[in-house]
Amino acid sequence: MWIARLEGGDANAFREFADTYSQYLFQVAYSVLRSVKDAEDVTQETMMKIYSSLPQYRGQGFKTWITRIAVNKAIDYKRSHDRKREALTDEWEQHLPVARSVNPVEEIVLKRQERELIRRKIRELPDSYRDVVFAFYIEEKSYQQIAEEQNLALKTVESKLYRAKKYMKKHWKEEERE
Score class of each variant (00 low, 15 high):
T89D: 09
Y51C: 08
S53W: 01
T46C: 12
Y77S: 02
T46N: 02
H95N: 12
Y57G: 04
M47Y: 04
R100A: 07
D82Q: 15
Y51R: 13
K49L: 06
I69K: 05
Q94V: 08
S101D: 05
R100E: 06
I50Y: 04
S101K: 09
H95I: 13
L88M: 09
Y51L: 13
S52M: 10
S52E: 10
S101Q: 08
G61F: 09
V102C: 13
W92S: 08
K78Q: 14
E45R: 08
R58Y: 03
T67E: 06
E91L: 12
L54E: 00
Y77V: 05
K49Y: 00
H81Y: 11
A99C: 10
E91D: 10
P104G: 14
K84F: 02
A87L: 14
S101T: 10
Q56I: 09
H81A: 12
L88F: 12
E107F: 10
H81D: 13
D90N: 08
R83H: 05
R83C: 01
Q94C: 07
Q60R: 14
S53G: 00
V98K: 14
Y51N: 04
E91W: 11
W65Q: 08
M48Y: 04
L54T: 01
K63S: 07
V102P: 00
K84G: 03
P55S: 07
E91Y: 13
E107T: 13
Y57M: 10
K63E: 04
T89K: 14
P55G: 04
N72K: 04
T46P: 07
K78E: 08
N103E: 15
K84W: 02
N72S: 04
A87C: 07
I75Q: 06
W65H: 03
I69R: 04
W92Y: 07
A99K: 13
D82N: 15
E86V: 09
I50E: 02
S101R: 12
Q94G: 09
T46M: 04
L96T: 02
R79A: 05
V98W: 08
Y57C: 05
E91I: 15
S53R: 05
E45V: 10
R79K: 13
Y51T: 06
W92V: 15
H81I: 08
Q94T: 12
V71L: 07
H81C: 04
K73G: 00
